[in-house]
Amino acid sequence: MSSLGDLSVSRDLDAPIYVAGHRGLVGGAVWRHLGEKGFTNLIGRSSSELDLRDRDSVFDFFAEARPRHVVLAAAKVGGILANSTYPVEFLSDNIRIQTNVIDAALKFDVDRLLFLGSSCIYPKFADQPITEDSLLTGTLEPTNDAYAIAKITGILHIQAARREYGKSWISAMPTNLYGPGDNFSPTGSHLLPAMLRRYDEAVASGATSVTNWGTGTPRRELLHVDDMAAACLHLLDHFDGPTQVNVGTGRDHTIAEIAEMVATATGYTGTTEWDTTRPDGTPRKLLDVTTLRGSGWEPTIDLADGIADTLTWYRSHTPALRN
């Protein structure tokens, strides 16, 4: 996995790069990282400006913008509750978004495209740590299987484009992400932002007890979104293969341990209760990151530091966040 030469995105800082989902958690971090690295021709459209579910609009946009490279970070995302409640929307919206973008990228001959998925693509009981070849070897976690199927479809779409059209396009599957710009909604957020909001509100209200879903025993790997953004550019510069690449830290913690870290960061001193009538989700999701490390990339942000950083962002943006 040496440098890709002329295919290396960093060789041309003036190349037009479309970041789909540039106002989301991952896309926003990618946008910031590319700007910090000197890229001068970044292209972004908000969902109000361009509905990626609308095929004609997507093709019209590509015809006008003519991006040379694409980072496909746009997606409908949410936590266990949202995924369980709205599986049709998570399946339909995500398949339409990624199909329209990938097909338009084919029509307008995009050089490099990075499709971003999720570690939920892997079987619920996959051997740990999860290797890339675990894909499609077992049953998915039922609480987010619709979203996972959509993302698996995207991976296969990228692989098909490589086989049929010889495209040097790639897929990356991040572990659980967190950081500035996350969704802190009580009904739509993932593990860490949900906890940060819950414990911070408990501190503000003087509550002496906080209740989390499940047993606290499942293990989760967490990656700061700024590390993810750095990994994206690294892969665009150094990786060209059909297999999706796992992106993570290679380390995990129990949800109870993560809750303790969040409590410490927020200054919460009360008790933590666990509602065991609520689902735990997948028992463990630790990614094998051998492929990524073999390409020369390692994360740099410690979990405790990342939690503190995210808390600072949350507190400074609380009035404007989604309810």
Rank of each mutant, 00 (worst) to 15 (best):
I258G: 03
G250L: 13
N183R: 10
L192F: 01
P180V: 09
E201C: 11
G241S: 10
A230F: 04
A172G: 14
K167G: 05
V210R: 01
W213F: 05
P186W: 11
A194M: 12
P218L: 01
M195C: 12
D200Y: 04
S189E: 01
H234D: 03
M228E: 10
R163G: 08
P218S: 09
S171R: 07
W213S: 14
M228T: 03
R220V: 01
T175S: 14
Y199V: 15
N212P: 03
S209F: 07
D200Q: 14
H234V: 06
D227A: 08
R219K: 15
A204C: 04
N183H: 04
T254L: 01
Y165H: 15
E164K: 11
P174N: 01
G179Y: 07
A259Y: 03
N212R: 05
T187F: 11
N176K: 13
G214I: 01
L196K: 03
G250A: 15
N212D: 12
H190Q: 14
G214L: 03
L177K: 10
T217M: 13
L223T: 11
V225S: 01
A230Q: 14
W213I: 03
Q244M: 11
R219W: 01
D182F: 00
P186I: 06
V210I: 04
L196D: 02
T208P: 04
G206Q: 06
A256F: 02
S185M: 12
C232F: 14
I255M: 02
H190F: 11
W169A: 07
H190L: 11
D237C: 08
R251A: 00
E257K: 15
E164V: 15
T215E: 01
P174S: 01
V225Q: 00
M195N: 08
T249S: 07
H224T: 04
S171E: 06
T243W: 11
D252S: 15
G188S: 07
P174K: 00
P193N: 09
R251F: 00
S209M: 10
V247G: 04
T211H: 05
N176L: 15
H253K: 08
G181P: 06
D226S: 15
D182G: 13
H253E: 04
T175C: 15
L236Y: 14
D237K: 06
A230Y: 03
M195A: 14
A229R: 09
T249R: 01
A229W: 02
T249L: 02
P242I: 10
T249P: 02
G250I: 06
G179A: 08
R197M: 08
V203P: 07
L177T: 12
S209W: 05
L177P: 04
P193G: 09
T208V: 11
I255F: 00
F239T: 08
S168V: 03
L196C: 09
A229E: 10
